[in-house]
Every structure is written in C-alpha cells, then in structure tokens.
Design a protein around this nucleic acid. Structure first.
Ligand SMILES: [Zn+2]
Ligand SMILES: [Zn+2]
Ligand SMILES: [Zn+2]
Ligand SMILES: [Zn+2]
Lengths: 148, 148
DNA sequence: GTCCTAACTGAGAACTATTTTCAAGTAGGG
DNA sequence: CCCTACTTGAAAATAGTTCTCAGTTAGGAC
C-alpha cells in the first residue's frame, strides 16, 4: 500500500503539485493514485471510496481540497453530468468533451479540435476574451438505441 | 395582482402546461409570470423572491416543482453558470448558449445555429443519437477587459 | 539526522441547495 | 355546484459541500 502511494509520487499530477509548492502528503498521493488509475468523471465521494482502499484514514474533506487544487492548477475541471454531484474530469493534456447517455449514464470522451475554434470565433466576434468552455452533448448511446 | 396572474395565463408557457394536462394554479402562474417578465438565468431562490411579490404565499417547493415541469416539457433547462446554484434558462423557442464573464458574472446569450450542426455531426459519427447539448463559454467580457 | 514551522490533516459541525412528506386547499370536468 | 385527483405550503429530511479546529506532518534549515 505504501508502495502504491510511492508510485503516485512519480506521476505527472504529483510533479505539477510539487512544482506549485504543494506538499506531497500521503492523502494527496492517494487521491492522485486513484485519478491516474483511470477513475475519470468521478464524484468526490467515489474518489474518496477508492482512495480509502489505498489509504484507509483518508478524509472526505481532503479529497475535496485536493480536487480543488487540481482545478486551480488547470489539471482538472468540474462537470455536471446529469446527477446532482459534481464530477471531476482530468484534462490529461487536452481539453475534451462528453457525450452523456440519458438512459444508461455512459460517458464517452470526445476530442474534437474543430469545436474549440468555433467557440473561439463566436466569443471573439462579441468582444469576449474566451478562457475556456464547457460542452456536454446528451442523448442516447448506441447500445441503448438497439436494446429497447 | 390577480391581474398579473391572469396575464400570465395568456402566455406561451401557460398554454404549454395546459396542453400537457397541468392545472393552471395561481402559484404556477406566478412563476410563469416572473419567467416571462424577463427573469432568465434565474436561480430557484430568485424566482421565488420575485414570485412572492405577485403571489405572497408562494412556496419555494412549488417553484422547484414548476421549474421541473418546464424542464420536463423541454421549455427550460438547468445551467450551472459559475456559482453553486443551478439556474434555469428558458428556451424561448430556440436553444441558445452562454458567454459567462469570470470577472463580473455577466451572462450573454448567443444564438448560433452553426454549433448545433457541428455537435450533431460529432454525435452521429459515434453512433450517438443526440437529444441536445449544453455549452458555456467562460472568459472575460468586453467591459471587464477595458476597465482594469 | 534533528528541529522547526507553516502547511496539512481527519472528524464532525455547519451550511446550502434540493427533495420529500403530508395534511389542507383548489382547479376544473361533469 | 360537487367531487376528486391534482396541487399546495411548511417543515422535516436528505445530500453535497465547506468550515473549524486541535493534532499531525513534510520538508527546508541546520
Ligand atoms: Zn446508454
Ligand atoms: Zn472525460
Ligand atoms: Zn465582465
Ligand atoms: Zn440564456
């Protein structure tokens, strides 16, 4: 278990936190480990549950605090994907969008450069200096269309 | 005051509710009156406060329930525009997007047909049947750029 | 290595937004 | 005008998130 935390220390997120002057504590490493392990689009509660498996005394407040730091550093962002909880999405290294299935909740990542230039163009035309944007497309996924 | 409620009865929203089989009660008419009076992007709390002015015994729960009905009927949708509360946006008759200013909170409506076809195309390519989408662009508005 | 201090922590209280419950009230078809 | 199913407001319940605070810890200075 200590082993897994040490593994997280070598990740890109840990490096970014360290660069920004944040201490690399075990609770934070546990959160980073969970996120880098593929748990994208996770609610704070889900990250907390998974984090407890590698660091049992992890507190929920620390999960929220760590997710806030990642957001502040531009490494993640909150998304509202249908349910009440705000889910956090890692940027990995590029901004991406989501297709959200209304029926089964499936979230499909889409990486579409074209859209970025469209939004920039719209914003620019209105004198608005765009810093980022947020897009979700909702509907019914392929599997749910056939199985009904 | 009774007069204002009667006025709301003649609106497009009231017609849609009636068509869907909902009763046109005074509390509902008060909410519709507020929304049609230009209070777009309003949080449930704000709708409640404004609604009390025309119908003093209005309850907050009824505001939530009425907004839910409008959402269900496709006449409005929730948006998360920076602050914690979910704000409701009337569709009027066309889907629109938002430019949200990080500095002053100004929300600018954008009606851009081009974007709809882009998102439909993306969804279609992935076998996804799009029902709608949700876009916010955030950054700094023109006024906040010059006054700093 | 040891010390030191500011940064960080978990637990639980507090806070906020939203939903549910329920007894009482009402719209509107018959 | 009468019913009755739908609707209501108030209050309680729930859920998500933030705050508080006393104790702990990372990591730079020595
Ligand atoms: Zn699906
Ligand atoms: Zn994603
Ligand atoms: Zn502004
Ligand atoms: Zn709008």
């Amino acid at each position: 278990m200590e082993q897994t935390l040490e593994h997280a220390r070598g990740g890109a997120l840990a490096a970014a936190l360290h660069r920004a002057g944040y201490k690399l504590t075990n609770p934070r490493l546990a959160v980073l480990y969970v996120l880098e392990g593929g748990m994208c689009h996770a609610s704070p509660q889900e990250v907390y549950a998974a984090g407890c498996a590698v660091y049992p005394t992890l507190g929920l407040a620390t999960v929220y605090r760590t997710l806030d730091i990642l957001t502040e550093l531009g490494l993640a962002r909150p998304s509202y994907l249908g349910d009440a909880a705000q889910r956090f999405t890692l940027h990995h290294d590029h901004h991406h969008y989501h297709l959200v299935c209304d029926a089964c909740g499936l979230i499909t990542d889409v990486d579409e450069e074209a859209l970025g230039s469209v939004t920039d163009e719209i914003a620019g035309r209105l004198g608005f200096r765009a810093r980022g944007h947020y897009l979700e497309i909702y509907g019914v996924c392929q599997r749910c269309q056939s199985s009904n």
